[in-house]
Amino acid sequence: MLPMKPPEDSAMASERALAESRSTAPTYVLRLYIAGSSHVSARAVANIMEICETHLQGRYELEVIDLYQQPTLAEGEQIIAAPTLIKKLPAPLRRIIGDMSNTEKVLVGLDLRKKESDARGITKVKE
């Protein structure tokens, strides 16, 4: 970062922040486990791809795994529900289940949004 900066407007500032974060923020390693080509699976794949393209463009690796093809992974990765998205990196590991239709919650799950408080009223503080 430069010590001296010309004044910027808010739009420019956010643009800059985004660019900076792109260069310095860690790469996201995501795995989406789906069970066959059901509607829910298809929806989940479409939703997560859109979210990634919008918020993590250029710094994510998304792997879509069909559990029917690789059933041993279900046990190894502790998959119960389908679809399940696992954020392998950056730490901490997080699981997001469902068809990824609630973008806000997915972003919270990916630590891209600060979570105010969860359903049980426990406030989680994130960096």
């Binding site: 041993t72 046990e75 529900a81 997001i96 609630n102 919270v108």
Partner: peptide, 20 residues
Amino acid sequence: EIEATGEYDLEGLFIRLDHA
């Protein structure tokens, strides 16, 4: 660890059980 975003099923569990 788990965040829910919409509809899901327990297919993962079924597959594990089936495999076992």
